[in-house]
Each structure stands twice: as structure tokens, then as C-alpha cells.
Nucleic acid binder design. Structure first.
Lengths: 209, 209
DNA sequence: GACAAAGTTGACCATTTGATCAAGATTAAA
DNA sequence: TTTAATCTTGATCAAATGGTCAACTTTGTC
């Protein structure tokens, strides 16, 4: 049979999608070892042997899910423009990261889970593409500082701070829910307040006096 | 036999300690489900049945380890003194949290792991003692703001930001190691730079103009 | 040194779980 | 409609794992 779409049958496309969604759901909640193929198969509405027809092993499925979330993770960072000015560039980045935490918290939690376990599958990406990107963006920040557009800070740790503060809203959602409540109105206001607070502290904090 | 020390034999005390250390090691690295009793027993240098002589179930062992780390977690937060001034109080808190992340990263990672999984065992602590503490400290921050000692920010989200930025150095150590390297000198300098950056951004950011 | 309590472990069990396979059902091109 | 490829699953397997048990050893008190 020819390869009608991306090398995949209609059924293949639909089922792969359903499996990947179910897998992200389960893996982000319970981690790799805490998730069983039976759970994923049930969540995807099919039998376990059928799931294994699409992904040969649990590892292969996990790696596929992880890779997809990684791409999302890197994209907004790559968009940071050294030509722009720090306030608008970092502001846009913070907004994008917060939006990602709000819209796709599971991806963030899957990533956090993997890092916590020592990132056995992420090492190459972290030491390669991510490291390159971090070095590029650090240079941009150093230029901003040299041009007097920003207070002098260690670029690397500024980046860490932004990652930490934004991803926290996805990774520690459980804790925030326990402190504030879980209704959707509370959550929506949470992200507004988060953005306001981050903007206030960071912009005030980075503005040269 | 009488209860010579805290209701525990000499051997009991030693072995409990060894088990709890090994358990924190393993649980913080691999999570609850990712850790096996065989691994913990081996790390503690004893047989699995012997381990189960001290802790009746895996759950019981896990809960004991978790509870111990939780106490450490709460202590520095409770010490935040509303009578002091924001810069020194928040500064001391940030230093304490960073020190905790440096000295006991495993405790932080265990906690993060549990929150990521939905904190099934932490719900009571989060909604009780932690929530009370957060409300008390939020009030203190609001007073500082009202007294013009701080720029107006949402206290809750300022607290989140400090938690996020400090714990990040324990929870995402793997990522930082991949970006910067793993030698002890690198790590030591990392924590110095972290403190400097956090102080710069937060104090500058929170100082009223 | 005797002896009861405490401590220790090899062997074993039941369940869970990732993976296989053969047989049957569905799909789509001719 | 035919037919070959694709899709689906019940039954099953081997390994891993939490937990039990009976038997043995060590410890501490008299």
C-alpha cells in the first residue's frame, strides 16, 4: 500500500494520536515507572496488544511523548530576539512560558519528572541544542547589560530564575490548588497575578537606576 | 525490656537511620513506584525481610521519609519575622532555602516528586499547617507594603517566586549540571551566583522607588 | 552461662506488568 | 466480490516485586 499521509494510514494517525494523548496524561501524572501500559491502553480505549502494535515498547512510547514536549519547550526560548530591548523581549518570553504552563501543564510536568529522575533520556538534548541556545541567549543578555539597558546580573541565573518561576505554575499546581482552591476562576486569576508579579519584580529589579 | 532511648533499642536506632537514609536516596531519585524494596535493602546493607521488620510496608517507609523532609521544609519559612524589615527577613529566608537546596537536594526532590504526582499523601499538610503559615506570612508582607517598605506585589506570588527560584537549584540540578558541568567547584560557584542574582533582582525589584 | 527477647534471612507466594502470538475482524484497492 | 494488507484482541508467558514465614543467630539481662 502507498503512503497516503506522512507514511501513515488514516487509522494509524488517529490511533497514534489517541495513544500519545493518553500516554502524556498518564506519564505526566505518574512518571515512567508509575504508569502501566494497561492504564494507557484503557485511557486510549483499546487493548494492550493493540497499543503495542503502534509502539513496540513502553520505552519507545515514552520517548516519543517526551520528544514532542521538548520541542514545545524550546520554541519560545529560541524566539528571544537580541535585537529587541530587554523589557519587551523578556516580557514576551515570560508571557509565553506562563501561557505554556497554563495551557499545557502536563508537558511541563513530564519534563520536570524526567529531569528529577536524572534525565537519562534528555542528556543529549540538554548538552547539545539546549546548551547552545543558552549560550547564545546569554550573550544577548550580556550585550544588553553592556549597553546599559539592564542592571548587571549573571545571564545564566536570570534564565534559571525565569524558568523556575514560570514552570512552577505547572509543576507545583497541586500545591497551589491546595493553598488557593481548584475552581477554574481561581486558576485563571492565579495566572493573571503571576504575570503581574513577575513583571513587577523582574522589570523593577532589572531596570538600571 | 525497658525503653532505653526514645522507645528504641540501639540496633533499632542504627538500622532505622540506615534505612531512612537509603530510602531517601532511592525515593528521591526514582520516586515511589520507581524504587524497589530490594534496592533500598541493598543500599542499607541488609536483607529485604529485615527491612520489613523495621517498616511493615513500603508505604509506611515512604511516609516516614516524606514526613521527615517536610519538617525541614517548613522550618525556615516559619522563622520569617514580621517585626524585621523586608530586605533582611526575605534575604535570610532566601539564603536558608538556597542552603537547603545545596545541602539536602534529595529532600527537595522527594518533595517535588510527591507534588508532581498530585501529593496524595501531603494534602492534609498542605491544606492545614502550610496554608496557615502562608496566610500568616502573607499578612506580614502586606503590612510591609502598607508601611511603604516594599513595592506592592501579591504576597502569595512573591512567596511562590522565592520557592520556585530556590528549589529549582535542587530539583533541576541535573539540567544545570548538563549545562555547566558537574565538578564540585562549578556547583559551589553556582550557589554563590544564585544568591547574588536572587538578591540583586529581588531587592532591586521590591525596593520602593 | 542460661534464656527470653530481639534481630536476621533464605525460600517461597501471589500479583502485577511488559511483551508475545496466533487467530480472527476490518479495511480498502482491484 | 475478492483478496491481501492492516488492524485487533484473548490467552499466555517470564520476570519483577511487595510481602510472609519458619528457622536460625545475636543480644542483653539475670
Amino acid at each position: 500500500m502507498a503512503t497516503p499521509n506522512g507514511g501513515r494510514t488514516r487509522i494509524q494517525q488517529e490511533n497514534r494520536e489517541r495513544i500519545l494523548t493518553a500516554a502524556l496524561d498518564m506519564f505526566s501524572r505518574s512518571g515512567y515507572r508509575g504508569t502501566t501500559l494497561d492504564q494507557i491502553a484503557a485511557a486510549a480505549g483499546m487493548s494492550k496488544p493493540n497499543l503495542l502494535y503502534y509502539f513496540r515498547t513502553k520505552q519507545e512510547l515514552y520517548q516519543t511523548v517526551l520528544q514532542e514536549t521538548l520541542d514545545d519547550w524550546l520554541t519560545p526560548f529560541a524566539k528571544l530576539d537580541p535585537q529587541g530591548d530587554p523589557a519587551s523581549e523578556l516580557g514576551a518570553y515570560i508571557s509565553a512560558k506562563l501561557a505554556h504552563a497554563r495551557i499545557n501543564p502536563k508537558a511541563s510536568r513530564l519534563f520536570a519528572n524526567e529531569i528529577l529522575q536524572g534525565a537519562p533520556l534528555l542528556e543529549d538534548t540538554l548538552k547539545g541544542p539546549l546548551k547552545d541556545l543558552v549560550e547564545t541567549k546569554s550573550k544577548a543578555i550580556r550585550t544588553w547589560i553592556a549597553d546599559g539597558k539592564m542592571v548587571p546580573v549573571d545571564p545564566l541565573h536570570l534564565i534559571y530564575m525565569i524558568w523556575a518561576a514560570t514552570q512552577h505554575y505547572a509543576d507545583f499546581e497541586t500545591q497551589m490548588d491546595a493553598l488557593e482552591g481548584t475552581d477554574s476562576d481561581t486558576r485563571a486569576k492565579r495566572f493573571e497575578a503571576a504575570e503581574r508579579t513577575l513583571f513587577t519584580v523582574l522589570f523593577n529589579g532589572l531596570k538600571p537606576r
